[in-house]
């Protein structure tokens, strides 16, 4: 069962897209791959005030991910705690995982010619820290939550 989730408090999100840059700079990604995305619906008037809500999407870290079995080298893996990640050593950049993912979430990194995706910044998580996007969110709207079975 997945242990973690990134949750967006939409009341605090101001659509500044900083999380996208925090993610990229932490993973030292060049222009091209964007691993988490902020988006919103067009504005709609609600009681006289045009409103919209923001959404955050990185990777769903599926319970039974399509990207893992399709990987020919075993680079794409799912950890015990649910985090789906790419072992950069083993990845050959064949992009099979991109085709298998219903949302095409894994991205091609032109700097390494390999696949890169959201792994909740697992090196940080293992060090007891939070993912880069959560740690530096401009308005503390993103939360990294541990799920508890009830």
């Amino acid at each position: 069962m997945n242990k973690y989730l990134i949750y967006l408090n939409t009341k605090r999100c101001i659509g500044c897209h900083a999380c996208e840059v925090h993610c990229k700079t932490n993973k030292r990604l060049p222009v091209g791959p964007i691993l988490c995305e902020i988006s919103h619906e067009p504005l709609k008037a609600v009681r006289g005030v045009p409103k919209t809500e923001y959404r955050f999407r990185s990777c769903y870290h599926c319970e039974d991910p399509y990207c893992v079995p399709v990987c020919p080298t075993g680079a794409m893996q799912k950890r015990e705690d649910g985090i789906v990640f790419v072992d950069q050593e083993r990845c050959i950049g064949c992009m099979a995982c991109v085709g298998a993912c219903p949302w095409a979430i894994p991205k091609h990194n032109p700097a390494t010619n390999k696949v890169v995706k959201c792994d909740y910044c697992l090196d940080r998580v293992d060090a007891g820290l939070k993912p880069a996007c959560v740690t530096r969110c401009t308005t503390h709207a993103l939360k990294f939550v541990s799920l508890v079975e009830i």
């Binding site: 500044c16 897209h17 900083a18 996208e20 840059v21 925090h22 700079t25 740690t135 530096r136 969110c137 401009t138 308005t139 503390h140």
Partner: peptide, 10 residues
Amino acid sequence: GGALCAKGAA
């Protein structure tokens, strides 16, 4: 509290 905008991160 660690918060930073896109400009700062870039």
